[in-house]
């Protein structure tokens, strides 16, 4: 199957929830999803055995934009399907997809520690990367955290 065909299959699987789909590069497909639909979309991909979850990227869009963007990258061969979820910066909550893909645990813990995002329903929220004496409520990957003048 060609990369385009694989992407089309994936696109069809999540078409119900996708508000908008983009093709920024030939081997990529980005679908913008509401946070509430995330679990359903991931379940659809998982049930169809479409690729595997490569990682979750957290992006801070900045204080002015007031939003975080979470990118769930699914890869199948050369094709990459990204589910893009935007959540407000002042109340960053998203549903865990642990129940569908258990290997997501490390990535979700990374989001919790680095961005201070609350992942609802992920079983293990112990600190994984940050030191034990790292202050509460300081999230290093947020744009307003400046290592130099903090």
């Amino acid at each position: 199957m060609t990369t385009e065909a694989i992407l089309q299959t994936g696109s069809a699987l999540i078409a119900v929830w996708a508000k908008e789909t983009l093709t920024p590069e030939p081997n990529r497909l980005d679908a913008i999803i509401e946070p509430d639909d995330l679990l359903a979309a991931v379940t659809a991909l998982r049930d169809a055995h479409w690729g595997y979850l490569s990682t979750i990227t957290g992006v801070d869009l900045g204080v002015e934009a007031g939003e975080f963007e979470l990118l769930y990258h699914f890869c199948a061969g050369a094709a990459i399907l990204t589910l893009r979820v935007r959540i407000p910066r002042d109340q960053p909550v998203v549903t865990s997809i642990y129940s569908v893909i258990p290997s997501v645990s490390f990535y979700e813990r990374e989001l919790i520690e680095m961005f201070g995002i609350t992942i609802e329903g992920t079983p293990n929220t112990d600190r994984l990367f940050l030191p034990d004496d790292w202050p509460q409520g300081v999230y290093p990957m947020r744009k307003d955290f400046n290592p130099a003048d903090a």
């Binding site: 990374e110 030191p131 202050p135 290592p147 130099a148």
Partner: peptide, 16 residues
């Protein structure tokens, strides 16, 4: 490879 996300600075101490 895993541990690449954290700055060594502790902001609560105000030192670089």
């Amino acid at each position: 490879c895993n541990d690449r996300m954290v700055a060594i600075n502790d902001p609560s101490r105000g030192e670089q």
